[in-house]
Amino acid sequence: MNSAARIEAFLEMMSVERGAADNTLANYRRDLEDATETIKGGLAGAGADDIRAYLGGMAARGFAASSQARRLSTLRQFFKFLYAENLRPDDPTGTLDSPRRERTLPKTMAETETGRLLDQADAEAAGKAADPVAAARMHALVEVLYATGLRVSELVALPVAVAMRDERFFVVRGKGSKERMVPLSQKARDAMRAWLVRRNGDPALADSPYLFPSPASESGHLPRQVFARDLKALAARAGIASAKVSPHVLRHAFASHLLANGADLRAVQQLLGHADISTTQIYTHVLEERLVRLVNDHHPLADPPP
């Protein structure tokens, strides 16, 4: 079995047994095909030195350490699969160290800025907007996103059933078709119900299975690129630099604000749908700041405020 056939077998396993999403499979394919084309003799028979040289070549091509680490993660899974299936007698990635990555903090928004963004969306939905349907939709989108921390792909593809029952929690299907329960604030539920009235009053939208339909899109629901564009425009109208705002930034704000106000890191991991706690640990700076504040505020030997 050559490299191409083994890659196909690996991708089939990730799809059928692991439920990997289409985007994830596409990333795996791109990573493995690049390695196959670059490593002399192909990927299937590569040794540890070949892979080490390949990763070093990525650095020479200008790839960041984070990209090298992600590529190594793909290769680890691929060779682990080959070893488990007796297609190789060894795993050449077992002795390789991950490239050292600099700790980068996620972009987020202050609570005051987030409040201004939500207030702007609320005011536009309640006022005489030029497009009242779009204003009601945007209000529902930002309220639900900040209340739940959903990935943007999860948000725009929500089923309409979520808004048709007044419950404090709903189940969302995330990466790898894994389900998790997320909470809905009262403000988010109110915004969704107001949007549902507008949505159901439009014959072009009413019959869609999606909460945020878009008949013109291939998927049938609002494209995430459209939401991202409209969110930046909303931020500008709220007096916030549009470059600072994106759906992912609001997801980070959800997590950071929860931790800053006393939430547990494990709980935030579950709410975000992170498979590994190490992914959630990008927010540890928030915990560190909270601990310093806790000691300064409550320790008997802490310096008094000036």
Results as ranks from 00 to 15, higher is better:
Ser3Cys: 02
Ser3Gly: 01
Ala4His: 09
Ile7His: 08
Glu8Thr: 12
Ala9Asn: 05
Glu17Met: 09
Asp22Ser: 15
Asp22Lys: 14
Asp22Phe: 14
Ala26Thr: 11
Ala26Leu: 12
Leu32Val: 05
Glu33Val: 08
Glu33Cys: 05
Asp34Gln: 11
Ala46His: 00
Ala48Glu: 05
Asp50Pro: 01
Ala53Trp: 09
Tyr54Phe: 11
Gly56Glu: 00
Gly56Met: 01
Gly57Asn: 12
Ala59Tyr: 09
Ala59Met: 09
Ala60Gln: 10
Arg61Cys: 10
Phe63Ile: 15
Ser67Val: 01
Ser67Thr: 07
Ala69Cys: 07
Arg71Gly: 03
Leu72Met: 14
Leu72Val: 08
Leu72His: 05
Ser73Val: 05
Leu75Met: 01
Phe78His: 03
Lys80Val: 09
Asn86Val: 12
Asn86Pro: 11
Leu87Asn: 09
Asp90His: 08
Asp91His: 07
Pro92Trp: 00
Thr93Met: 00
Leu96Asn: 08
Asp97Val: 06
Asp97Ser: 13
Ser98Asp: 13
Arg103Met: 14
Lys107Val: 14
Lys107Met: 12
Thr108Ala: 09
Thr108Gln: 07
Glu113Thr: 15
Thr114Glu: 12
Gly115Lys: 10
Asp119Phe: 12
Ala121Asp: 07
Asp122Met: 15
Ala123Asn: 11
Gly127Val: 04
Ala130His: 09
Val133Cys: 11
Ala134Cys: 05
Ala135Phe: 04
Ala136Trp: 02
Arg137Trp: 04
His139Glu: 11
Glu143Met: 10
Tyr146Ala: 10
Arg151Leu: 08
Val156Phe: 00
Ala157Ser: 15
Leu158His: 00
Arg165Thr: 14
Phe169Cys: 10
Phe169Ile: 13
Val171Leu: 06
Arg173His: 12
Gly174Ser: 04
Ser177Val: 14
Ser177Asp: 14
Met181Pro: 03
Val182Leu: 01
Pro183Asn: 09
Gln186Cys: 15
Ala191Trp: 00
Ala191Val: 00
Met192Arg: 05
Arg193Ile: 09
Trp195Val: 01
Val197Ala: 13
Arg198Thr: 12
Arg199Ala: 04
Ala206Pro: 03
Ser208Cys: 06
Tyr210Leu: 04
Glu218Arg: 15
His221Trp: 04
His221Arg: 04
Pro223Asp: 06
Arg224Ala: 15
Arg224Thr: 14
Phe227Glu: 01
Leu234Ile: 08
Leu234Phe: 09
Gly239Thr: 03
Ile240Leu: 07
Ala241Lys: 06
His248Lys: 01
Leu250Thr: 03
Ala253Cys: 08
Asn261Gly: 08
Ala263Tyr: 03
Arg266Leu: 02
Ala267Cys: 04
Val268Arg: 00
Gln269Glu: 05
Leu271Val: 00
Leu271Gln: 00
Leu271Glu: 00
Leu272Ile: 02
Asp276Ser: 10
Ser278Tyr: 07
Gln281Gly: 07
Thr284Pro: 01
Thr284Val: 10
Glu289Met: 15
Leu291Arg: 15
Val295Asn: 06
His298Asp: 10
Ala302Pro: 03
Pro305Tyr: 15
